[in-house]
């Protein structure tokens, strides 16, 4: 493993924390997820974060593109890709470093939500199994969304195009799996259903950790990272 991946990841993560847009994304996520938690904590209802995980899935549809939009396109726009590509590191290391930087920011975004767990603990005795599984599912979902965003970011020098493109791509996947599967015949409906992240995340929120789900998120993320690497490599040749 190239030693340059870690410095690239840390620089990327720190850059997001040094820009106002990074803090806006964090604030937006915490506000919306906080509302979901506040609504779900009611007397007589079970002490769980299922509502939070369900809402986070939708919030991440917007937040993940915002995290991923500047990963590569900002480098292209500002021209900083030039000295980066002149360094003795592979395009693969650049992409992986950028991706890990995005994932680190996602974890930073999720970290304050542990307050919700502490709140549940204070109010009652929550079941930690579904909470841990839910966080695992949310992280894996975020990783997939950021990988999709990274690919689109590596195709354009405009962060706005990267943001909108990722948003559109994620919504397309979501709609194809949710709505599209009901309108096509077998076996296409099953293929489309297999792409659904909603059902997989629902399993995590219930406390079910299925290795098939984990493999799905990791492999699809890896696939998009590979495509982003290819897109960056081909950019050199253009």
């Amino acid at each position: 493993m190239s030693t340059s991946i870690v410095p690239i990841a840390i620089r990327e993560w720190a850059a997001m924390l040094r820009t106002p847009s990074g803090w806006i994304v964090i604030a937006l996520y915490l506000l919306l997820s906080g509302i979901a938690v506040a609504v779900s904590i009611q007397p007589g209802l079970p002490a769980s974060l299922r509502q939070f995980f369900g809402a986070s899935h939708l919030i991440l549809l917007v937040v993940a593109p915002a995290i991923a939009m500047r990963l590569m396109s900002e480098e292209f726009r500002a021209g900083t890709i030039e000295p980066l590509m002149a360094a003795p590191i592979s395009d693969w290391s650049i992409i992986l470093g950028k991706y890990l930087g995005g994932v680190l920011f996602l974890l930073t975004l999720l970290a304050p939500t542990l307050v919700y767990v502490a709140l549940l603990e204070w109010l009652s005795a929550p079941d930690y199994g579904p909470i841990l599984a839910g966080y695992l599912g949310l992280t894996l979902l975020g990783m997939l969304y950021i990988a999709v965003g990274l690919l689109i970011s590596s195709l354009t020098r405009s962060t706005v195009v990267a943001l909108l493109g990722t948003l559109f791509a994620l919504m397309l996947i979501e709609l194809a799996a949710g709505q599209g599967s009901a309108h096509v015949a077998d076996p296409y409906d099953r293929i489309l259903m297999a792409l659904s992240v909603r059902t997989r995340l629902a399993d995590f929120a219930k406390g079910v950790i299925d290795t098939a789900h984990i493999a799905f998120f990791l492999l699809t993320s890896a696939w998009f990272i590979c495509l982003a690497t290819v897109a960056t490599e081909t950019r050199r040749w253009r």
Binding site: A15, T19, T80, E82, A86
Partner: peptide
């Protein structure tokens, strides 16, 4: 690349 020091046109740097 280890043997090259490169200052690209416009000196692109990370402002933050």
């Amino acid at each position: 690349r280890q043997r090259i020091g490169y200052l690209p046109e416009g000196t692109p740097l990370y402002p933050e």
